[in-house]
Simulated assay, not measured.
Amino acid sequence: MSVKFSGWEVVDDGASFAGVELGASQTPQNRGVYSMYHGTSIASARIIIANGFKPSTGGMLGKGVYVSRDKKKAAHYPLRSNPSDRVVFEVRVRVGRVKRIDKDNHPMQLNWSTKGYNTAWVPPNCGMRSVPSGLEEDCVFDPKRVKVIGIANAPNATIKAELQQLLAKSSKKHRRGSGAAVDVCSLCKRKTQQGSTHIKQQCWSCGQNICILMSKHFCSAKP
């Protein structure tokens, strides 16, 4: 007996749907929204959750908030710190306009933010001596473009639970301050725009209820 399949799957680069996690070598799209990681200390993690990010005053790419798609890279920060004092945030990044920095002494390595760019991107294995690990790295000039959405790693379960609780309280406080509840579509799990419901309909093949903004739907139907 043969089985026919129907449906779809969208492979998105972040320009359409928020929170996409790109592969290491995928080029970030201007105005995309991506999931990345940021490594910090326990004390700084508490401050960031309470008050948001502050840009570093210097670094390979100059002033900004440093993040990476590679959790292993983020897990090594802060450099020269004890691993028992390291926390890795999962963050959502609105990259804005992106400048690729892929060689040592790039003419815009430190001044990209003054040329109309919001994020500098160092692709993996580009040969820069200042990135001996060869792992992907990003620097976001405006800290408001980087938001903590989860605790990816912590030294132990107690610290992780504490930070998750602080993050939940901070998120709840932020929602109250916005004056409006956030509605989420039950099918595609995406936020609705200003409370407007998404268009839902039945799949022509299997009859299952679907949202037109779902990134994936598979069904099987008898021939």
Rank of each mutant, 00 (worst) to 15 (best):
V91M: 05
R92C: 12
N153R: 11
K169Q: 12
R100S: 06
R100M: 09
E137I: 01
N153G: 07
E137M: 06
K115H: 14
R92Y: 01
V122H: 02
P107W: 00
L163K: 11
V98L: 06
I149G: 09
T114W: 01
P143A: 08
V131R: 04
V140L: 06
A168R: 12
P124F: 00
V98Y: 08
S130F: 05
K115W: 12
P155R: 06
F89S: 07
S170M: 10
E137S: 03
P143M: 09
A161T: 15
D102M: 02
K160R: 15
Y117C: 01
A161E: 14
P155G: 02
N118E: 13
N111T: 15
H106D: 15
V140Y: 00
A161C: 07
P124N: 03
R97M: 06
Q109S: 12
N118R: 07
N156E: 07
S133Y: 03
A120L: 03
N156T: 06
S113L: 03
V88A: 00
L110Y: 08
K99N: 01
R86W: 03
D102L: 02
D102C: 09
K144V: 15
E90F: 02
K172E: 13
V95E: 02
D138R: 09
M128W: 03
E136Y: 00
S130Q: 14
C139N: 11
S170F: 01
K160N: 08
K144I: 13
S133W: 05
V91H: 04
C139K: 04
D102T: 06
R100G: 00
P124H: 04
M128I: 15
P123N: 04
R145F: 02
A154R: 06
A154L: 08
R100E: 10
N125K: 13
G116I: 07
D142W: 01
F141N: 11
K115E: 15
K144H: 13
N156S: 08
V148H: 02
E162P: 03
K147T: 15
D102P: 04
G127L: 04
F89G: 08
R97Q: 10
P107K: 06
N153T: 12
W112V: 13
K160S: 13
N111R: 07
A120P: 03
N111V: 14
N111Y: 01
I159K: 10
E90V: 07
V95Q: 04
P124W: 01
H106T: 11
K160D: 11
N105I: 08
K144S: 15
T119M: 02
P124A: 00
Y117W: 10
K144Y: 09
V98P: 00
V93S: 05
N153D: 15
I101L: 02
S113D: 13
E162R: 09
E136D: 04
I159S: 09
K144R: 14
A161M: 11
V88P: 03
V88T: 06
A157L: 14
S171A: 13
P155N: 07
V95A: 12
E90P: 00
S113R: 10
G96P: 09
V146F: 02
G127E: 04
M128Q: 12
Q164G: 15
G150D: 13
G127R: 10
